[in-house]
Design a binder for these strands. Structure first.
Lengths: 343, 343
DNA sequence: AGAGCTTCCCAAAGCGCTTTGGATTTGTTT
DNA sequence: AAACAAATCCAAAGCGCTTTGGGAAGCTCT
């Protein structure tokens, strides 16, 4: 069923039917009602493509998911983020189109998205330090919103980020107050902006407490269970091992816990752990009482919110770039306790 | 840059330029070359929407991701599957469009996808037992391919599945050969078809070895760490506890391991564990030597292959439905060992 | 009763592409 | 050299929608 058939069926012109369906005022209430009923009856939906062609809007948002060629990694938060954004799109009649792309072809994808007029805007995932995409998208005049921020970027841009600096500074402070002085950081890859900011927060806290920064206690890598395990295992074998860990993700934290146990130690007693928790649906931090003490911020909510922000800037192109910063919730679980006294 | 401008620029008609770009034979090699060079120079890409309108093809595949309203769960394998499918689409000039939908509006989404002519076909995720979507999509005449199978469905349909029955029967056999007689199953939700098949495989092995089926050793739920933990913890507290576990996912298995350790037992010595391993990029089963003994099958490969199958059936609509079954690789890790002798 | 408004509807153009059905040029045959 | 075929290219229609620029009723007002 298309517009032509529907309007013929109703004995009206295509114009009138189109207007009735799109809420224009030049149509009497009675006719509109009649049209709407018929549309429902025949299960008429306008063709997205035709509508897009006619209006010049794509009614679609692009998500370009980088998959690093080196690690073949799909960011595990991606699923939940997308789920959140999808809710927003569904509510607003937008479609989400996904491109999986290795980092080499990234620029090409954005250019093609623009020149094919396939989307009205894009969400930028996994921003890196000095990320060239901000400049690229700005020059392409393709509306975009970043999930995270870009250090060393002086162009204005729209983003939503978690306050990573604050969260990790606070977490480190908390460990300090518990008496810990050897605090390790199991971070994500530091070319990723969020990891960089977390390290800065961690270092800021150490500095403010006069604790020297020991690079032996810091590592930066993909956030997998294995890598968390290996990093923590090695650090615990040091002559002067850490009494506490700060992890960038719940998945790494699981590995850290395993390393602690393999050293014959108990988490929460001998060694404390704080992790960032993205509240992933398949990896909850315990039930009623959290297992890990954590800096918590739902990535699904972030997806929902950021999509709203993007749709908003597309609607009102004149608006200046929007900046949204979410504060983490600090939850105390069973993984932290007073630093063990030296015997 | 659009076709009109490009052709004006070249002093050719739109027809010729279009034909040159789409590989039709009515164009001389020289002209084609000239056109291709100009297209690259001006970064010309045809508008997807206009092309779709003109050809009647959407050049897009829909993925409808169900998010259960009860659990708010996004299937953790989803990210990797999508990454695999995305590779195929990119190679074939297709777009992937994603709809997140709660189970209540599912039917509506498929109908709307069809009537808006938004996609050329869809991938069906997370098939359930007796899944109504097969009948729905067949009647809508919307091409589709299922990631998994549907028990109790006598309609023919295209799918790709892992041989779940075989994998779990083999895994149970393996545990039997190690001397285990009390083997627990920590399964996914049993309305999911894959979980059902795994249970059947498990039960088939028990029956063939004359071991009675004990429902106290079986549980069926979402595959999270917490739930794996709780299920295993409870079972290990039974008067006659299991000496081995069979898990539906690596995430559950992590929970099971934790439960084993919380009981003061050692995995691989006191209690054996076998898990299914989807080879998720962020959750690898160890490095060179696997941690868990596992039935392994990459979900990313599955995504790539299933997308190929779907594009193929769309291309050749006359072909009968395709059925692809992937066998799991059985890998032996450190999580299994001979059953402990009773003292 | 006619001017001037609304109200309600329509015909037709246009979005950017593909494709049909020629038209023109060039090459080949007899 | 005429006749025909092959090689190249083009004008225009059409895909399904929105939107512009009216036009025909039906009112109100003087």
């Amino acid at each position: 069923m298309n517009l032509k058939e529907l309007s013929k069926n109703l004995g009206l012109s295509q114009t009138t039917v189109s207007r009735a369906l799109n809420g224009y005022p030049e149509v009497s209430a009675a006719t509109r009602h009649r049209v709407e009923r018929a549309a429902k009856e025949f299960n008429y939906h306008p063709s997205t493509r035709a509508k897009g062609l006619a209006t010049g809007r794509a009614l679609a948002i692009g998500h370009v998911i980088p998959v690093s060629t080196k690690h073949e990694m799909v960011n595990p938060v991606f699923g939940d983020f997308i789920a959140g954004a999808g809710e927003t799109y569904a509510r607003n009649g937008f479609e989400m189109i996904l491109s999986i792309v290795d980092d080499l072809n990234e620029e090409q994808i954005y250019r093609s998205l623009k020149s094919r007029r396939a989307v009205d805007g894009v969400i930028v995932h996994g921003p890196r330090i000095d990320d060239p995409r901000i400049a690229l998208l700005t020059s392409l005049e393709l509306p975009f919103a970043v999930h995270g921020q870009v250090t060393h970027c002086d162009l204005p841009y729209t983003f939503l980020d978690v306050n990573n600096h604050e969260a990790f500074e606070q977490a480190t402070d908390y460990l300090f107050d518990l008496g810990h002085r050897r605090i390790a950081l199991v971070n994500g890859l530091e070319n990723m902006d969020f990891a960089h900011r977390r390290r800065c927060g961690y270092e800021a806290s150490l500095r403010s407490h006069g604790i020297p920064i020991d690079t032996a206690l810091m590592c930066s890598n993909e956030m997998t269970e294995i890598i968390g395990y290996e990093a923590a295992y090695k650090q615990l074998a040091l002559p002067n091992p850490p009494t506490a860990f700060l992890c960038a993700s719940l998945i790494s934290a699981l590995g850290v816990r395993r390393a602690i146990e393999d050293h014959g130690l108990t988490m929460g007693k001998d060694v404390s752990v704080i992790t960032h928790d993205d509240v992933l649906s398949y990896l909850q931090n315990g039930g009623d009482t959290p297992i890990f003490t954590a800096t918590r911020s739902s990535v699904r909510t972030a997806g929902r919110r950021l999509a709203e922000v993007l749709l908003n800037t597309i609607e009102h192109t004149t608006k200046p770039p929007q900046r949204v910063i979410l504060e983490c919730e600090f939850v105390v679980g069973q993984s932290t306790g007073p630093a063990p006294r030296k015997d």
